[in-house]
């Protein structure tokens, strides 16, 4: 069964704004595959950090549609061109989200803490020299610093703060970001995780990871993750094996195309 998502021809654009690409499509596919669960979650406040062209937040609003039952949507971007493009994309699709020109969720973190039921992030994940991080314009959409983790590592603590107890986070990562390490890090904060979509292209191997608060996982600041047979660790192990398998196939693809 297919649901409504944003139409590419109605997505606005600007030379300084990242256009919908494989990562955006993979994130929307992940949300689509989880649509029924999302409706069951009945999110009240939904948010996207780094909305870019607006393709993802628009698709999210369209796919939930009237069944969203009055849920409100907020999106942020550090790039003011992206905010404008998102506004145009939403208008072209007849949907509305509150837009804020800010860095990650700066200005919202205090009052919105513990209130966001659904958070989606397609972060700048491309490994780059550290000095490319935080530049203006389109570079802010991809420049991720060392291992592509600079901005991701800033977003994760904010995400933890914003998410409600029942909140879900969907985030795009690349193999180079070391997603299994991200999952272990989040587990220490009490979050379970799973890969919702995995996709290899010639250039990159993408994973859309979903995080949710799991009461069976005790948040622990000490590094005690050594016993791979413990139940919560099984989740991370499964994520890790999926990732390893994926990177294996990914590298095979690259080998066959380059040889």
């Amino acid at each position: 069964m297919s649901y409504k998502i944003a139409q590419i021809r109605l997505v606005s654009s600007h030379p300084e704004v990242y256009e919908p690409c494989d990562d955006s499509f993979a994130l929307v596919d992940a949300l689509l595959s989880d649509r029924n669960n999302l409706l069951e979650l009945k999110p009240m406040l939904c948010m996207e950090v780094g909305c870019g062209s607006g393709y993802v937040i628009t698709s999210l609003m369209l796919m939930l549609g009237e069944e969203a039952n009055g849920a409100q949507f907020i999106a942020t971007d550090i790039n003011h061109h992206a905010i404008k493009v998102t506004q145009e994309t939403m208008e072209a699709h007849g949907v509305y989200a509150e837009l804020i020109n800010t860095d990650i969720a700066s200005g919202l973190e205090n009052r919105l803490a513990g209130s966001v039921d659904l958070l989606v992030v397609n972060p700048p994940y491309v490994p780059t020299p550290e000095d490319e991080v935080g530049r203006e314009g389109i570079a802010s959409a991809w420049a991720g610093g060392e291992n592509g983790r600079s901005v991701i590592d800033k977003i994760l603590p904010v995400a933890e703060k914003l998410l409600s107890k029942r909140g879900w986070l969907y985030m795009v990562t690349l193999t180079a970001n070391n997603p299994s390490q991200i999952c272990r890090q989040m587990m220490k904060k009490g979050y379970a995780s799973k890969i919702v979509v995995q996709r290899s292209t010639v250039e990159e191997s993408l994973h859309i990871i979903k995080f949710w608060k799991d009461n069976d996982i005790e948040a622990d600041t000490n590094d005690v993750i050594t016993n791979s047979k413990a139940v919560p660790l099984g989740i991370v192990d499964s994520v890790r094996s999926q990732i390893q398998r994926l990177s294996f196939w990914g590298s095979c693809d690259i080998n066959t195309t380059t040889n």
Binding site: I83, K84, Q87, L99, I100, N101, T102, D103, S106, G107
Partner: peptide
């Protein structure tokens, strides 16, 4: 002052 133009608050510092 954080300006609000065309309905968008600019919270950039």
């Amino acid at each position: 002052k954080f300006p609000v133009n065309k309905g968008i608050p600019n919270m950039l510092l």
